[in-house]
Amino acid sequence: MIINNLKLIREKKKISQSELAALLEVSRQTINGIEKNKYNPSLQLALKIAYYLNTPLEDIFQWQ
Rank of each mutant, 00 (worst) to 15 (best):
P41N: 01
K7Y: 07
K48D: 08
R10W: 02
N54M: 08
Q62I: 10
A50M: 03
I60L: 12
L6F: 04
I9A: 07
E25P: 07
L53H: 00
L47D: 08
Q64A: 13
S18W: 15
I9E: 06
E25F: 10
D59V: 09
T55Q: 07
S16W: 03
L47A: 14
R10Y: 02
K48S: 09
S42D: 15
Q29Y: 12
E25W: 07
G33Y: 13
S42N: 12
M1S: 06
F61K: 01
M1Q: 05
I60F: 03
Q44L: 10
I9W: 06
T55P: 01
N5A: 05
V26E: 05
I34D: 00
L24P: 00
K7C: 06
N32D: 15
N4L: 03
E58M: 09
L8W: 12
I15W: 07
K38S: 15
Y52G: 06
L57I: 12
I31H: 00
L6Y: 00
P41M: 05
T30G: 03
L43D: 06
L43V: 13
P41C: 06
D59W: 08
L45H: 04
I3A: 08
Y52K: 07
Y52N: 07
N4T: 03
K13P: 01
L53R: 00
R10S: 02
P41V: 09
E11K: 08
K13Y: 07
S18G: 15
L8T: 14
K36L: 14
T30A: 09
Q62P: 05
E19L: 09
Y52Q: 12
S42T: 10
S18V: 14
N40F: 07
R10K: 01
L43T: 10
K14M: 11
A50P: 01
Q44C: 11
L45Q: 07
N37K: 12
G33T: 08
L24E: 00
P41R: 00
A21Q: 03
Q17G: 05
Y39G: 06
K12E: 12
E35W: 01
L43Y: 14
N5L: 04
K13T: 07
K38P: 02
K38C: 10
L8R: 14
I2E: 09
K12D: 11
L20M: 06
I15F: 10
K38N: 14
A22E: 14
E25L: 12
Q64C: 09
N32M: 15
E25V: 09
L23V: 14
N37L: 07
L53T: 04
Q44W: 09
Y51A: 13
Y39M: 10
L47M: 13
L20D: 00
Q17N: 04
I60D: 00
W63D: 04
I34K: 00
A50H: 03
L47F: 09
S27M: 03
N32W: 11
I60C: 04
L43A: 09
E11V: 11
W63S: 05
E35K: 00
L53D: 00
S42M: 04
V26N: 02
A50I: 03
N5S: 05
M1I: 12
